[in-house]
């Protein structure tokens, strides 16, 4: 059995990382693990945050001052994260008005991606494969490991290690950026922004020659920025998990090369030690990538409000609400 597992691990490291079919079929369509993870992740994320919210919110007055105290470690972690993201990251970057407007979306994206990333650290799929191999036909499992494992998993894997998923998340960021732009700058302001800003559009005629180039670059940038978000998240999640799979594949490589079992076991033990260290790194990366996705989305959104300040400075106010002018300039 051990040999089977090692061979299964060593066959193709990417096969254990990338999205694959689950054992669940709906209407004749086999659902990928990423879809199951998305749904389960969403439910868990909402459930955990709902429980945390009830513990963070102020209790009944009969509790006295204790009603203001957050109870529970998860709720305290959520509170610390929310406060740090809101007060230390988003408000300084976006300003009060934008932060208040986009905080629900950005925090939701952060915690949703974080949940999916953390799910990827728990080997749900591997445990199911193990159970399947232990309970199932040992010979058949050895003969067709890939087939046996792919049909035995109901839930697991890292949804954010699937490009379709990260692309879907970045689509939301894409629309958030456009909505912010159209809402704050209007259609004309957005077009001016894409053409290099009002200084260039209302500038000398000679400069109009570069406007098509700038328009093409800026328009491409509106798509490239969210795409970069998707690729960055995917690459980081895939890289870490691939490294783990490769580490565990060393033992299988020894077996395949005809090495003794004790050597494979020893190498697997050493690789397991390093895998534990990598797991801590992956835990950090799970938080970091969720934060980066959210933070860059916030930066891109705040860039679309930047024209406000430009108009104010150069006397081209287009009648946006006065509160926008009171904000600090976003960091770039």
């Amino acid at each position: 059995m051990m040999t089977t597992l090692l061979l299964a691990a060593g066959d193709d490291p990417l096969a254990h990382v990338l999205d694959r079919d689950s054992a669940i079929t709906v209407g004749g369509t086999t659902l990928p693990l990423s879809v199951i993870s998305l749904v389960v992740g969403s439910i868990v994320c909402i459930g955990v945050l709902l429980a945390a919210a009830s513990r963070i919110s102020t209790g009944p007055s009969s509790e006295g001052n204790a009603r203001y105290v957050t109870k529970g470690r998860i709720a305290q972690v959520v509170e610390v994260l929310v406060l740090a993201l809101r007060d230390q990251m988003l408000v300084p970057v976006m300003g009060e008005r934008l932060a208040k407007r986009w905080l629900p979306l950005l925090l939701s994206l952060f915690f949703f991606i974080l949940t999916l990333n953390l799910f990827g650290l728990v080997p749900f799929a591997d445990l199911q494969e193990l159970l399947h191999v232990v309970a199932g036909d040992h010979a058949a499992a050895e003969a067709d490991v890939a087939h046996a494992t792919s049909s035995a998993v109901y839930f697991g894997g890292t949804a954010t290690a699937c490009f379709s998923v990260t692309l879907g998340l970045s689509v939301i960021s894409f629309f958030a950026i456009w909505i912010q732009s159209l809402r704050d700058l209007g259609v004309k302001g957005t077009l001016e922004h894409l053409c290099g800003g009002p200084d260039l559009v209302h500038g000398p005629l000679a400069l109009w020659l570069v406007i098509p180039i700038i328009f093409a670059v800026e328009l491409a940038g509106m798509f490239i920025k969210p795409a970069a978000l998707a690729i960055r998240l995917l690459a980081n999640m895939v890289a870490g998990h691939t490294l783990m799979a490769v580490l565990f594949g060393f033992g299988a490589a020894v077996l395949k090369a005809g090495g003794p079992a004790w050597a494979a076991g020893s190498i697997t033990l050493v690789a397991g030690f390093f895998a534990i260290l990598i797991t801590f790194l992956e835990l950090f990366v799970a938080f970091l990538q969720a934060f980066i996705f959210m933070f860059l989305t916030a930066v891109f959104i705040s860039l679309m409000a930047h024209e406000d300040h430009g108009h104010e400075e150069h006397g081209h106010d287009q009648g946006h609400d006065s509160q926008a002018h009171a904000e600090p300039a976003p960091a770039h």
């Binding site: 999205d19 990928p32 998305l38 749904v39 994320c45 939701s108 949804a159 879907g168 939301i172």
Partner: peptide, 26 residues
């Protein structure tokens, strides 16, 4: 298409649910 559409849909539902149920409370 399926994971992409699911990601968009589930993420939007999550955002809406959290925006209505969680963030105002917190």
């Amino acid at each position: 298409v399926l994971p992409l559409a699911t990601a968009v849909g589930v993420a939007l539902l999550t955002v809406i649910a959290l925006s209505v149920l969680v963030w105002p409370k917190i």
